[in-house]
């Protein structure tokens, strides 16, 4: 066995970067530390035309320090306060990678509440922009702690619209891409059901199944690729403090 030098977090960052390959000149929206690094990696390598946000009111030609806004550095190139964000969403020139508190096999996502929404067992943040994002432009999901509590049979509140619900006008611009987790990368099959695209090095198919609340088949899944030397340099330059390892610790 060779010495394992590539961290799980770095594999995840490269998978996020790959998810933005070919997205073109759109606004990248990335929720989470690994996604935030991943879109920077995508811009620095295969998709230079990608537009980054500072998470506040600016599109950035040069990104500010990780998790910081334009006030902390970088070069703003456009003013996109919240009022323009919803217009950008409706225009379709955006690609999101959002989090998920629950996700089902159709790709329905929940960030609103757990239990009956009338009086939830656990109130979360609210649907935020998930309903609008999913019917307007490409949406991927990022799950830092893959578990059977997140990958469930059915979500309690469909915040992000899954493939089974994307009919009529809701389906016109609906485009679910991938789900990147700390264990694997998922896509959707021709029936819109979640399938394993690749499994991260060091994860067994049994482990993946155990952490997923519905049946999946990872027996023939290829390994998620490891980042290149060049990519690793970019990743550590973007995240010198190693915040990504806190989001995805080594298992």
């Amino acid at each position: 066995m060779t010495l394992q030098t590539i961290s799980r977090a770095d594999v995840c960052v490269a998978a996020v970067s790959d998810a933005f390959k070919g997205s073109g000149e759109v606004l990248a929206h990335a929720v989470g530390i690994v996604p935030a690094i991943g879109v920077r990696l995508a811009k620095a390598t295969h998709t230079p035309e990608l537009a980054l946000s500072d998470g506040e009111a600016f599109m950035m030609a040069e990104a500010p320090p990780l998790l910081k806004t334009a006030a902390a550095g970088g070069v703003p190139e456009a003013w996109v306060p919240f009022r323009s964000i919803f217009d950008i969403v409706a225009s379709g020139r955006r690609h999101s990678m959002m989090g998920a508190s629950q996700i089902d096999r159709h790709g329905n996502q929940n960030i609103s509440s757990i239990g009956d929404w009338r009086q939830p067992k656990r109130q979360l943040i609210g649907v935020r922009g998930a309903p609008g994002n999913t019917v307007n432009h490409r949406v991927d999901y990022w799950v830092a702690k893959h578990s059977a509590r997140i990958f469930v049979d059915s979500v309690d509140v469909a915040s992000g619209v899954g493939n089974d619900r994307a009919v009529g006008t809701a389906g016109r611009f609906h485009d679910l891409g991938v789900v990147v987790t700390n264990l694997a990368v998922f896509g959707y099959d021709e029936n819109g059901l979640i399938k394993v695209n690749s499994i991260h090095p060091g994860v067994t198919p049994e482990e993946l199944q155990e952490a997923t609340g519905f049946p999946i088949d990872a027996t023939d899944a290829p390994l998620t690729r490891e980042p290149t030397e060049e990519e690793l340099k970019i990743i550590s330059a973007e995240d010198p403090k190693g915040l990504r390892h806190r989001e995805v610790p080594e298992s």
């Binding site: 409706a90 649907v127 309903p131 019917v135 307007n136 915040s159 619209v161 619900r165 009919v167 809701a170």
Partner: peptide, 13 residues
């Protein structure tokens, strides 16, 4: 009118 909300549980809530 808006596209957002279609297909989601916002309609049910």
């Amino acid at each position: 009118p808006i596209r957002a909300g279609l297909g989601s549980d916002v309609m049910a809530m």
